[in-house]
Amino acid sequence: MNGELKVSKIRNGTVIDHITAGMAPAVLRILGIEQGCSDTVIVAMNVRSQRLGLKDMVKVENRALEAETVKKIAIVAPHATVNIIKDFAVVQKIPVELPQELIGIVRCSNRNCVTNSSERVTSYFVVESRDPLQLRCHYCETLVEGAAASVLL
């Protein structure tokens, strides 16, 4: 062993790299594969990273991510990169980027918020700060911080 990362390559699919250490399970939930899936999924946690110290990584075969999914990943892993793989080669690197507004992405943590009632209304957050992550609910003005942001699945 020379200390290098030994994780199998995938032929086609998506590699989500530089996930904040410990957040791989959250990314799997966002990808909807916590219940199991038929394609190969490789998860690495607490891997050494020059940039982050420690990082997590998720590889999913035969899966392309939708824009909404990338926004959700940005909330739990703001430094992640999404690599599109074709024939074992990285054909595209997409840094995840948090948009200024998150519509239908995050659930408001305020139980008395109108978005958590029976009204037909989509959650709507404005990003007030990216680092540390702070989101303000457009409706009830509750400030949701970092890990407290509950991503809608």
């Binding site: 305020n110 008395n112 918020c113 109108v114 978005t115 209304v121 457009h138 409706y139 009830c140 509750t142």
Partner: peptide, 9 residues
Amino acid sequence: HPLEGSARL
């Protein structure tokens, strides 16, 4: 209204 955010809605 008793719900927070209702006026904005």
